[in-house]
């Protein structure tokens, strides 16, 4: 039997893959949040950043190739994250055929109990978000190449901003448990530094949630227009 098969077949191997792909996806949302903050620097800077993502590495890398390689990597990470989750979920689903009359709730918080629900919310939102901001087919006034306009016009709609905010908060809960859980699944523990894993998870969760939420708030209050 090949080593990779032994690894993947194990529930722990799948958890480690969830942690590694989760790390990739977390790295993406964090840099995406930082990139979004460029909206505060004005239309020119923001659009140059959007175009910069397409022309990254030029002339060595042809125009758009870097972005597509990046997207394929992200889609691959998402597929592995979801497939291993579905396989593990099926395993857990059968593990307690009859539940407790009195619910056992010794878990340490809401975030760990809402991982699967949060994941579904996030994936659904990402599908909508791509149609809204990247493809533009559900956007009221989508202009190809004018990311700043698409952002500002897109978030001027109150329901859109509310749905976005709910998704960002769901992402926050997911990251709060997910980042800590990643350290644990990857076996990254040391008696001296263990308590810092929760601190790290909370700090990055707050950074991502606050960073993302500043955009619709700034648009609603006219700071970005």
């Amino acid at each position: 039997m090949s080593r990779v098969f032994v690894f993947y077949r194990s529930s722990i191997g799948k958890k480690i893959l969830m942690a590694l792909t989760g790390l990739v996806l977390f790295g993406f949302v964090f840099t995406h949040m930082l990139g979004n903050l460029k909206a505060f620097l004005g239309a020119e800077e923001f659009n140059a950043y959007a175009e910069g993502l397409r022309s990254f590495g030029a002339p060595l890398i042809p125009h758009g190739y870097f972005l597509w390689a990046f997207r394929i990597g992200l889609i691959g990470a998402l597929i592995v994250h979801v497939v291993t989750m579905v396989q593990l979920w099926a395993m857990a689903g059968g593990a307690r055929p009859k539940g407790y009359k009195q619910a056992v709730h010794l878990e340490d918080g809401v975030s760990s109990r809402t991982m699967r629900l949060g994941g579904i919310v996030i994936v659904s939102f990402v599908a909508y978000h791509l149609m809204h901001m990247t493809i533009g087919n559900v956007h009221p006034n989508f202009i190809v190449g004018d990311a700043y306009n698409n952002l500002v016009v897109g978030f001027q709609s109150v329901p859109v901003a509310v749905v976005y905010s709910i998704a960002v908060i769901a992402l926050g809960f997911h990251l709060h448990h997910g980042i800590w859980s990643m350290f644990q699944s990857l076996g990254m523990n040391h008696l001296k530094y263990n308590h810092l894993r929760r601190v790290f998870a909370l700090a990055f969760t707050i950074a991502v949630v606050v960073g993302f939420l500043t955009i619709p708030v700034a648009i609603a209050t006219g700071i970005i227009q």
Binding site: S11, I12, K14, K15, I16, L88, M91, A92, G94, A95, R96, V104, H105, L106, E107, D108, S112, R113, M115, H177, W180, S181, F183, Q184, S185, L186, G187, M188, N189, L191, N194
Partner: peptide
């Protein structure tokens, strides 16, 4: 037929011998 670990930590709260989930990280 057991489920998998989602790092809740309910086990270490319930454990009468207070065994830590640090050991789960080591097992991983």
């Amino acid at each position: 037929g057991f489920g998998y670990c989602t790092n809740h930590g309910a086990c270490q709260t319930a454990c009468p011998k207070e065994i830590s989930i640090d050991l789960i990280a080591m097992l991983n």
